[in-house]
Computed example of a mutant assay.
Amino acid sequence: MKEEDLRRAAFGDSPDLDVWQALAAAGPRARWLAAVVLGGQGHYAAAATALDALRHDPDPVIASLALSTRASHLRQLGAHHLARPLDGAALAKAPQAGPRDPDGVDAAGARTDALLGLAADSLGAQRLHEARRLLARVETRSWRSEVRKGWVTAEIELASGQARQAVEPAEAAHRTATSRKALRHELKSALVLGTSLVVWGTPDGLNRGLELVECELNHSAEKRLKPLVWPSALVLAGHAPTVGATAIDRATEALSCVLRRADAVSRRVALDSPWVPSGLLRSGEPPNADPQTNFLTD
């Protein structure tokens, strides 16, 4: 499988591409790209196997990116405490300089991914001042870093009760991802932006936010991006009564699928995590956790 195709799947217009054969590729970059794609599709166990091997790769950029990608997948399942040491190790491995890459698969991108991961870990632990300090250290030198910084910035503002301040960085992330035709990043950005607008709650913002999230949900489901489906469905369930029951069903189906595809440790942690609405898997009732701030950190 060509690296160009893997990049289209990881960072472009084909996030639903079948990349399984690339897990056996000779080059570590191809295997890392495949793990990124599989994580986006919710195949966390398969991605974890590849990433756990790549964290020991002789190339420090790939080793660092593997660690921070694995941390991101753990965080998406509510395991912020397990993600934090991996992000710390990723930062330690990231080289200070090296050749530039258009998608941030380079030394600067590795360092940025690690710092953004640490900021998201701090957010998950409700250490907001620490999250802001880490965010202030981030230097963005690629479109991907700009988008991810926008996500984390918006999420910190949401967690701080400052929804209005979350809209601008979310808007910028959505604009950048859309301009790059990076579909998975565009859809995640639409979720972050839509949620920010919904939480802000102005009449126009609420309508636009719900439209963004509903459109994103349908597109994410079409592209089989399960990790984006369940938080989107829960946002709609909480704010769009006409689709509430259907949204809960879609959230349950997507989250069940994601957990079935996770490794045993991640699955066990997710079921006990306050960040993951696993209660709906047991009772069929809407979760007590708040999807406005808890399900976005990446």
Results as ranks from 00 to 15, higher is better:
Gly124His: 05
Gly124Thr: 06
Gly124Lys: 04
Ala125Val: 11
Ala125Phe: 08
Gln126Arg: 15
Gln126Trp: 08
Arg127Ser: 14
Leu128Thr: 14
His129Phe: 11
Glu130Phe: 05
Glu130Asp: 12
Ala131Pro: 03
Arg132Phe: 07
Leu134Arg: 10
Leu135Gln: 04
Arg137Leu: 14
Val138Ala: 03
Val138Ile: 09
Val138Tyr: 02
Glu139His: 15
Thr140Ile: 10
Arg141Ser: 14
Arg141Glu: 12
Arg141Ala: 15
Arg144Gly: 03
Arg144Ser: 08
Ser145Leu: 02
Glu146Pro: 03
Arg148Lys: 10
Lys149Asp: 00
Lys149Asn: 00
Lys149His: 07
Gly150Ala: 08
Trp151Tyr: 04
Trp151Gln: 03
Trp151Val: 05
Glu155Ile: 07
Ile156Asp: 00
Ile156Tyr: 00
Glu157Phe: 14
Glu157His: 13
Leu158Asn: 00
Ala159Phe: 06
Ala159Leu: 08
Ser160Arg: 09
Ser160Gln: 12
Ser160Gly: 14
Ser160Glu: 13
Gln162Arg: 14
Gln165Trp: 08
Val167Ala: 09
Pro169Gly: 09
Ala170Thr: 06
Ala170Leu: 09
Ala170Gly: 14
Ala170Tyr: 02
Glu171Arg: 15
Glu171Gly: 11
Ala172Lys: 15
Ala173Pro: 02
Ala173Ser: 11
Ala173Leu: 07
His174Arg: 11
Arg175Phe: 01
Thr176Ala: 06
Thr176Gln: 06
Thr178Ile: 08
Ser179Gln: 12
Ser179Met: 10
Arg180Ile: 09
Lys181Met: 12
Lys181Tyr: 12
Lys181Arg: 14
Ala182Cys: 08
Ala182Thr: 06
Leu183Cys: 04
Arg184Ile: 09
His185Tyr: 12
His185Trp: 11
His185Ala: 14
Glu186Ile: 02
Ala190Asp: 13
Leu191Trp: 02
Val192Gln: 07
Val192Trp: 02
Gly194Trp: 04
Ser196Asp: 07
Leu197Glu: 11
Trp200Phe: 10
Trp200His: 12
Thr202Glu: 03
Asp204Gly: 13
Gly205Gln: 07
Leu206Pro: 04
Leu206Asn: 11
Asn207Tyr: 03
Arg208Asn: 10
Gly209Met: 02
Leu210Trp: 04
Leu210Lys: 04
Glu211Trp: 00
Val213Asp: 04
Glu214Thr: 08
Glu214Ser: 13
Cys215Gln: 09
Cys215Met: 11
Leu217Asp: 02
Leu217His: 07
Asn218Ile: 05
Asn218Trp: 11
His219Asp: 10
His219Leu: 10
Ser220Cys: 08
Ala221His: 11
Ala221Glu: 15
Arg224Gly: 04
Arg224Phe: 10
Leu225Gly: 06
Leu225Tyr: 05
Lys226Met: 15
Lys226Leu: 14
Pro227Asp: 04
Val229Ser: 06
Pro231Gln: 07
Pro231Gly: 08
Ser232Ile: 05
